[in-house]
Amino acid sequence: PTPPYLRWAGSLHSLLDDQDGIHLFRTFLKQEGCADLLDFWFACSGFRKLEPCESNEEKRLKLAKAIYKKYVLDGQGIVSRQIKPATKSFIKDCVLKQLIDPAVFDQAQTEIQSTIEENSYPLFLKSDIYLEYT
């Protein structure tokens, strides 16, 4: 069988599908000062999993606000700087109008995923932290 660390090099998806891979990648991102990219990516996935039913509405709204406040609102933050202005406006509108679709963060997640795939992920595969692990 292929060792996990070789699978991690196959695709970002393989890396993010493995607990050890996530842990190592997050350690790397933390060193680079951009662990928020990964946290945001998982927060978007977690939010989408929350079912929009009556008993969940308060939680969903609170969570959407928390994600917005922590990652999107702060224009200096690494996540906010990588999300397109139109995408940020869309999220802001949804949060302010309290119309929170499960897919509200999907576009932002896609944009952050592209940033990770184009920048952080290739750098990780060349990093000391990954090479030492292998």
Partner: peptide, 20 residues
């Protein structure tokens, strides 16, 4: 603030793979 952070952490953890 704490409960917001807890909610966020719970959300992030819920999206991570559970088993290896």
């Amino acid at each position: 603030i704490d409960s917001e952070d807890d909610l966020l952490q719970e959300c992030i953890s819920s999206a991570m793979p559970k088993k290896k």
